[in-house]
Computed example of a mutant assay.
Amino acid sequence: MRKLTYYIACSIDGFIGDESGDASYMVRLVDEEFFEFLKNEYPETMSTQGRRAFGLDDLENRRFDTVIQGRASYDLALKEGITSPYAHLREYVASRTLKESPDPKVEIVADDLVGRVRELKAEDSAFGIYLCGGSVLAGELFDEIDELVIKTYPVVQGSGMPMFQSAFAISEFELDDVRTFKNGAMVRTYSRKR
């Protein structure tokens, strides 16, 4: 069975962006060492446009072949005129309000999101599924998340959008790996205890 991995950037105090979800300031915190790590370990999590801007179109997927993102995350690309932000992956957008996909490569999942994710997880593939955000989607899919990859930047926001918007429930994860970087960033990987 394939894993659903919530791969997310956050502040030290656990916020993935401001109240509207904007986390553009975090990009400024990526230095050369950290960028090399991201490029080598998680190349498919870079948007297609970002890969092109850095001349990295030829990078092969290492971990994921599918991405699921929420409507708010997808809207960030749409505002820039980008209808397929992860063209190098199979793309799904969870939305109850977007009735028709603006791109034939992007499938809208309006109903039974959990059922659709379970179907994707049951597929035979060596690659996992990248949960791109945001917090509402992560909350809805919380029970389906098998792995957390949390890129923590050395900043405190004080308030903003949390990693998960869901009801209170304690769920245990096991720490698999921690990587630290000179810029103060840290990448922690956790597996869900089942």
Rank of each mutant, 00 (worst) to 15 (best):
N40E: 15
E172K: 07
L120G: 03
M161G: 00
E119G: 05
P104K: 11
E172W: 05
G14Y: 10
F54W: 07
D22L: 09
R2A: 02
D75G: 10
L113H: 05
Q69E: 14
Y25S: 12
A138R: 00
P154A: 10
K193H: 06
D58R: 02
D57M: 05
D176E: 15
D65H: 09
N40M: 14
A53D: 08
C10W: 01
F54K: 07
C132Q: 11
A110Q: 13
A138Q: 01
E44H: 07
D31A: 05
S24R: 13
Y130P: 09
L175D: 04
I12V: 15
L137A: 01
L78I: 13
G81D: 08
S95Y: 12
T189N: 09
P85A: 03
D103K: 06
E19L: 14
P154W: 08
P43H: 13
I129Y: 15
L175E: 12
L113K: 03
A122F: 04
E44R: 06
I12W: 09
G139L: 06
K121D: 05
S95N: 11
F34D: 02
L131M: 15
Y130H: 15
E41C: 06
L89V: 12
L78C: 10
R2I: 02
E172S: 07
G128N: 15
L98D: 03
A72M: 13
S73M: 15
Q157K: 09
P43S: 12
R28G: 12
F181P: 03
S171L: 07
I8Q: 01
V27M: 14
F181H: 08
D13Q: 12
T97Y: 06
E123G: 04
Y42I: 05
S159F: 02
A53F: 08
D58M: 01
I150M: 07
G21T: 03
E174K: 15
R179Q: 14
S11P: 00
E119I: 08
R71F: 14
S73K: 11
K3M: 04
L141F: 05
A72N: 15
D177P: 04
M46Y: 14
F15D: 04
T5Q: 00
P43L: 12
N183G: 09
G14T: 13
E123S: 07
E140Q: 10
K193P: 02
L59C: 08
G17T: 11
E100P: 06
